[in-house]
Each structure stands twice: as structure tokens, then as C-alpha cells.
Nucleic acid binder design. Structure first.
Lengths: 154, 154
DNA sequence: CCCTATTATCTCGCTCAGCAAGATACTTGG
DNA sequence: CCAAGTATCTTGCTGAGCGAGATAATAGGG
């Protein structure tokens, strides 16, 4: 057991920040009568939209780790709330492409925009070398957490 | 709408890292037949243990945002799995103090230890000024996310 | 002291997210 | 044009968490 160095406090801080970000999403969810999964789904959909990719029901479910039944129920909820639309695939009519409603996008930007703005502002208080350290650290954390998935792979 | 500066990519990275950390906890949960809430509960309990504070059922529920019924069910699950013990309060016998089992602590350390170690190692690759920037950034993010709770407070 | 208000936890009945299994609709290769 | 494959939906179920109220124990005024 390492004797509690100052690095561990930073790790603690990292966890606290991650938890707080999660709680912020949860607030968005409950304030809009949604569940955490619904928010995660909207984020996936908006990311795909940014990348100009179509998201089908199947892809969405896979991205969230839901099975087909859960995915159908999820899309039903989001559609009922008016956040997304189901559009049958043009070339392959088995597919259901999920489109995010503009208002849902605006809702998300209105809620997350301020926080994003604050973080951007925060970043601007650092010089380039410090910003590079922050980026590198975040990249490293993400990689380490993701790599912990498949244990002993090269 | 800001025209997509390089800071936004860092924000994106921050979100990705937070998500990945969340998924890591979720893996711990599912690998041990637990739910995300159970893991959060154990973290709260272990944090309290470190600080040498007693955690009652009520405090735990409040920390997790559960009502009394949900808290009872949660403690039942954790107790059934052998991760915690219920101990009636010594001075106030209405209270139920929740104690974490040593094996649950060891389980958590075994799972999260390697990732924590990697992050500590990562930090050691930076000089003191860079580490201060990372700490300051994380602190700022946590504060901003937490402050977004109560909107327009001084 | 005792009786009422208060506090801490638990019990009951319910709602709803997500799962497993299988039905349905559509496509594609032979 | 049909069989195998693929994408989504339907059905029936399990279990986390909620609201309301029961139960148990303490604290304080009379």
C-alpha cells in the first residue's frame, strides 16, 4: 500500500471531477424527465450528427450496451418525448435511422453550454505547455481506463 | 456558437475520460454482480472509513440520493453479498451503522489499484508546474460542475 | 417519570428500465 | 423466387427505486 503521496490526492480529485460531471448529466436528465441512459443516447446521437453519420437503432443500442428490446423501449421514450424521430432507412427499409430533433440539440446546448464555456475559459488561463500537460494527462487517463477493459493485451 | 477552437477538443477529451472512468466502475459492478449504485455506495462507505467516520443507513441514502426504501433495499443487497454488515448504533439504537467488510475493501483495491497506479505513474512524468496545472484544472472542472447545481448564486 | 413529538429504519405495493426469447419485416445470394 | 441472414419490434419477466405508512427508539416538556 503506497504511503499516501500527493499524487493520490490528484487521483482523488480526478475521481471527484468525474463524479461531478456525471451528476451534472444526471441533473440534466431529471430536470427534463429523462433517465441517465436517455442522456447518454442523446450524446451518442449528437456526436454522430456532428460527424455526419447516420445512427440506426442497432448502432445506438450497441453503443449503449443495450439489447434490442431495451433499445426499442429507449427510442420509444425519446420519440414520445419529442427528442428524436424514427426514419425508415432509404436503401434498406429494415433499418431505422434515428434523427435528433433540433429542439433537443438546443436543449442540450443550453444546459451544457455554460459549463463548457467555463471549462474553455479555465483552459485559457494556462500557457501552451500547461495546456499540453492537461491534454496529455486526460488522454492518458482515458487510455488507461479504456485499456483496463481487456486485461493483459499487448 | 464558438467556431470550434482547440479548447473544445480538450473539453471533448475531458468528457471522454470521465465517461471511460464511469465505464470502468460499471465493469467492476457487473463483474461482481453489482449495480452502479452499489459501487457508488461502497465508495461512499470506504471514503467515510478513511476519514474514520461512521456511516448510518440514512447518511448513505442521502449521499446517494435514495429514499429510505431504496436505501434499505441497497443495504440488503450489499449485506446479502457479504460486502457490508449492519451494526445497531451503540448510543442510539435506532441507528444502523454500516460497516464495510475487509474483503470488499480488498476487492476494490485489487480492481482499482492498477488504474490508480497508472495514473500516479502518468503524473510522475510531469514536472511540478505541469502537475499544478493539472490539479488546478481538475479542481476548476469539479467546481464548475458542482456550481452548475445552484444556478445564480454568488 | 411518562407521554408526545421527533427521528431512524423498515415494510408494502407499485412503476418502469432492461433482459431473454421469439415474432416480424426486409434484403441478398444462389 | 426462395432460403438464409439481418434489423427491429413484441411479449413476459426481473429487479432497482419511489411513495406512503408502519415500527422502534430517543428526547424533552409537563
Amino acid at each position: 500500500m503506497p504511503t499516501e503521496g500527493p499524487e493520490l490526492e490528484t487521483v482523488h480529485l480526478l475521481r471527484a471531477a468525474a463524479v461531478e460531471l456525471g451528476l451534472h448529466s444526471a441533473r440534466f436528465a431529471s430536470r427534463n424527465g429523462m433517465h441517465p441512459t436517455d442522456v447518454r443516447a442523446l450524446i451518442v446521437l449528437m456526436d454522430a450528427r456532428r460527424a455526419a453519420e447516420e445512427t440506426t437503432a442497432g448502432r445506438l443500442g450497441a453503443a449503449l450496451g443495450l439489447n434490442s428490446a431495451g433499445t426499442t423501449a429507449l427510442v420509444d421514450r425519446l420519440e414520445r418525448a419529442g427528442h428524436v424521430r424514427r426514419v425508415r432507412g432509404a436503401t434498406d427499409r429494415r433499418k431505422v435511422v434515428i434523427e435528433v430533433d433540433e429542439r433537443a440539440v438546443a436543449l442540450g446546448q443550453a444546459f451544457f453550454g455554460p459549463l463548457i464555456g467555463q471549462v474553455v475559459e479555465l483552459l485559457q488561463g494556462y500557457d501552451e505547455r500547461e495546456r499540453a500537460a492537461i491534454r496529455g494527462f486526460l488522454e492518458g487517463v482515458r487510455g488507461a481506463a479504456a485499456a483496463a477493459d481487456r486485461p493483459l493485451t499487448s
